[in-house]
Amino acid sequence: MKIARFGKIGSERPAVMISDNKAVYVDSLIKDWNRDELEAGALKKVRSADLSLLESFDIAGLRIGSPVARPTKLICIGLNYARHAAESGMTPPPEPVVFMKAPDCLVGPNDDIVIPPNSTATDYEVELAIVIGKRALYLKSEAEARDYILGYSIGQDVSERHWQIERAGQWVKGKSFPTYNPMGPVIVTGDEFEPDDVRVYCTVDGEKRQDSRTSDLIYGISHIVWYVSQFMELHPGDIINTGTPEGVGFGFKPPKYLRAGQEVITGIEGIGEIRSKTVAHS
């Protein structure tokens, strides 16, 4: 199943894709794709319904919202691709590097990326995003981790490198600006997607910047979910960005950071593409 949300900001409606171009709204069955509804069995309710009885619509021209509404947590794993760690000049970490983004920096997949005032170091990071499907805490083994995953989506972990790296303190400051996490266009449920060896890529104005596969992950999907559950309770709708491959802007010499007026295309094999325009803060 491919889960989506459509509508203007603040008025999105939950939907399910029935083809590449058509969907059905499911707000007659659930209120939204969010934590409360997922905890109450939203996925099971929608799966058990006869969606052919619902009127389909063409998605062309509609705004796509983030596929999950108001997640409790937006968690990130840093330095999790072997070649990205190498381009950063850092040794692969002995355990997953975990940091947070402000959840309200989450936006729709094709919404604008707003470059903050005076920023000259806004960067792009394609990431495979895990969406949690049920509460997970102190999982006993990696083997059970997949049972707690709702599905997967495309995350664009936009980063402001000056605030992330050059200022004192933790990375969260460079990660949490408004619009700094486009996500979508859908969540592909775990029964329809195999995440362990898929292509992930990012282009800026048509120039290929990142092009890798999730097989280059240092810590895989199951390990990440198991590991995070050892010190943090995961709730339905929580998002984990699993890390970015080589080719980020700050890895070039000189760096290739984003500026207003560019188009960023972020794609993952088996999920699709998202397209973001960069605009200056006003």
Rank of each mutant, 00 (worst) to 15 (best):
K2A: 01
F6N: 03
K8C: 06
R13A: 15
A15F: 08
M17N: 10
M17R: 14
I18H: 14
K22E: 15
A23K: 07
A23L: 12
V24L: 08
V26F: 01
D27G: 09
N34D: 14
N34L: 04
E39I: 04
A40L: 12
G41P: 02
A42Y: 02
A42P: 08
K44E: 12
K45M: 14
K45D: 04
V46K: 04
S48Q: 14
L51A: 14
S52T: 15
E55P: 11
D58K: 11
L62Y: 11
L62K: 13
G65M: 05
G65K: 00
V68R: 00
A69I: 00
P71I: 12
K73N: 11
G78D: 10
L79N: 13
L79K: 13
Y81V: 09
A82E: 15
A85G: 07
G89I: 06
T91A: 14
P92T: 13
P92E: 14
P93S: 09
P94V: 13
M100A: 11
P103L: 12
P103W: 06
D104F: 10
D104N: 15
G108N: 09
D112L: 09
I115Q: 02
P116M: 11
S119H: 07
T120S: 13
T122R: 02
E125L: 05
E125M: 06
E127W: 04
I130F: 04
I130K: 03
V131Q: 02
K134M: 10
A136G: 06
Y138F: 06
L139P: 05
I149M: 04
Q156I: 01
D157V: 09
R161N: 07
R161F: 03
W163P: 03
W163L: 13
Q164M: 13
I165V: 15
E166C: 05
R167C: 11
A168M: 11
Q170S: 08
K173C: 05
K175A: 03
K175G: 04
P178L: 01
P178H: 04
P178I: 00
T179R: 04
Y180M: 11
Y180P: 03
Y180I: 01
N181P: 01
M183I: 10
G184T: 07
G184C: 06
V186C: 07
I187T: 01
G190Q: 11
E192H: 13
E194L: 07
E194R: 11
P195N: 07
D197I: 01
D197H: 10
V200L: 08
D205I: 00
D205R: 03
G206W: 09
K208Y: 02
R209Q: 14
L217F: 12
I218Y: 05
Y219M: 10
S222E: 15
H223W: 06
H223D: 12
W226L: 03
V228A: 05
S229P: 03
Q230L: 02
M232V: 12
H235Y: 06
H235D: 11
I239R: 02
N241G: 00
N241V: 06
G243S: 07
P245M: 01
V248S: 09
G249V: 08
G249Q: 08
F250Y: 15
F252P: 02
F252N: 14
K256G: 09
Y257V: 13
Y257N: 08
Y257I: 10
L258H: 07
R259C: 12
V264F: 00
I265R: 09
G267I: 03
I268S: 04
I271V: 08
E273Y: 01
E273P: 00
S276W: 00
S276Q: 10
K277F: 00
K277A: 11
V279T: 11
H281G: 01
